[in-house]
């Protein structure tokens, strides 16, 4: 394959990644926000494939489909007006945030452009998945097993925190209604 299709594809995927990323915070519908984020991830995954990291890119897309579905589901659960039928803006420190975002972008892009990245391209992308497998079982064995324990902790922790009933009674015991107005005292 020549360079031109790859460059075109890169330009397209970059545009999707960035535009979808911006749309995440510019849409009223929570479900759309989650799926825009998914589109951004999928485009980044595709760029990774272009970079020769086929496995990482595809696995990112695979993982994110599930994670963003859960994200959309949880969003709808807890957000008032989940579909954005009634437009609203729920932001704070807006200017500061924009400035911080711009600074982060400029700083990172500057480092990337000026930092003099060494040019040592990957030699055999086809062997990358196997390399990763051997790394898992060899040098990074400890990381691999630690990940297992971490994931176990996450599963147990998440269910213990979120589950409606536990051994210590109902999870919402002693909870109270929030105030209807920001400065009011909560209802008993």
């Amino acid at each position: 394959m020549s360079d031109l299709p790859v460059s075109l594809a890169f330009a397209a995927f970059s545009a999707v990644a960035v535009v979808a990323g911006i749309r995440v915070f510019r849409t009223d519908s929570m479900v759309r926000a989650a799926f825009y984020l998914l589109a951004s991830f999928a485009a980044v995954g595709a760029i990774m494939v272009l970079l020769g990291a086929e496995f990482l890119g595809m696995v990112l897309i695979l993982m994110m489909a599930g994670e963003m579905l859960v994200m959309a589901i949880v969003m709808v659960m807890y957000m008032m007006n989940p579909a954005g039928l009634n437009p609203m803006v729920m932001v704070h420190q807006h200017r500061t945030a924009i400035a911080a975002g711009a600074v982060a972008f400029l700083a990172l892009a500057g480092v990337g452009l000026a930092g003099g990245v060494p040019q040592r391209p990957v030699t055999n992308p086809g062997a990358a998945t196997g390399d990763l497998g051997r790394e898992l079982l060899g040098n990074s064995m400890l990381v691999f097993q630690t990940a297992g324990v971490t994931l176990l902790g996450t599963m147990v922790g998440a269910i213990a925190i979120a589950a409606p009933r536990g051994r210590f009674g109902d999870a919402d015991a002693d909870s109270q209604e929030p105030a209807l107005q920001p400065d009011e005292e909560p209802e008993a």
Binding site: M77, M80, N81, L85, N86, P87, M88, M90, P164, D170, A171, D172, S175
Partner: peptide, 26 residues
């Protein structure tokens, strides 16, 4: 939006469902 509050009014001609307690505690 339709009214003074953030979810005020009846968007597109219909109100939205309302909160209620549930056996699940949510």
């Amino acid at each position: 939006q339709g009214g003074s509050g953030m979810t005020g009014g009846t968007p597109y001609g219909r109100p939205m469902a309302e909160l209620a307690p549930d056996r699940d505690g949510l």
